[in-house]
């Protein structure tokens, strides 16, 4: 195993901060990135608190997102409400297994995994949970990469609402579940963006968060 002092010095120890927009390393003392004009921080400000707050809101919304109807089909005046799960079951019964699996992953599995993964990452970055850096690096990468695909069900609702307006015969209207679900996807994406994976490496090397060193000195 590595010892804490066997790592090369961090940029932050030399007063260098990497820009969040263009990744240029500049001295923190100049305040603003000379290349693109963004504000400089050693780490994303308030990263863990923001991530946890966004994640918990997403977790709360996840329940109505799956229980409330995402759309209502009115066939010959008779309304039928559909949730994400009932749409999934329909595809499965039709024998469209690949589509059913895609919907299941995008709408149910990915948001849930993202919520668990980001809370786990936050715990690890705070030093409350032991972890392997290699594995958590992968977890972070997957949450960033896959998050957008959860939006697919919202787009399906949008397309169906736009295309199926056949007067009295059949109309489709969006339900409250669609709003909750879009909220879950956007909140988990914002949470993944506000998480700073470098906090994991700080924790692993047994060093404090560089911004904390600063504020403690002031």
């Amino acid at each position: 195993m590595y010892k804490a002092n066997s790592y090369p010095p961090r940029g932050a120890e030399q007063g260098l901060a990497s820009c969040h927009i263009c990744e240029k390393a500049s001295p923190i003392s100049i305040g603003v990135c000379p290349r693109c004009g963004a504000h400089l921080h050693f780490r994303k400000p308030d990263s863990i608190n923001r991530t946890i707050a966004l994640m918990l809101s997403a977790a709360v919304l996840y329940i109505p997102a799956n229980l409330l109807p995402i759309l209502t089909i009115r066939e010959l005046g008779i309304p039928r409400e559909k949730t994400i799960i009932s749409g999934l079951v329909e595809f499965w019964q039709m024998g469209s297994y690949p589509i059913a699996i895609v919907i299941f992953s995008a709408s149910i599995l990915i948001p849930l995994l993202k919520i668990i993964a980001l809370l786990w990452l936050c715990g690890a970055a705070k030093g409350m949970i032991p972890y392997s850096a290699k594995m958590l690096g992968k977890v972070y990468w997957v949450t960033e990469l896959l998050g957008r695909w959860s939006m697919v069900d919202i787009f399906v609702v949008a397309i169906l609402v736009a295309m199926v307006q056949l007067g009295n015969y059949m109309t489709v209207t969006p339900g409250p579940g669609a709003l909750a679900f879009a909220g879950v996807v956007i909140l988990t994406m914002l949470a993944a963006m506000s998480f700073d994976p470098r906090l994991l490496w700080d924790q692993l090397e047994g060093k404090t968060e560089p911004d904390k060193i600063n504020s403690d000195c002031e």
Binding site: V102, F155, L160, M163
Partner: peptide, 13 residues
């Protein structure tokens, strides 16, 4: 992602 949505909707329709 929207393109995948188009495919799924067409399956539904």
């Amino acid at each position: 992602v929207f393109l995948l949505g188009v495919l799924v909707s067409l399956m539904k329709l």
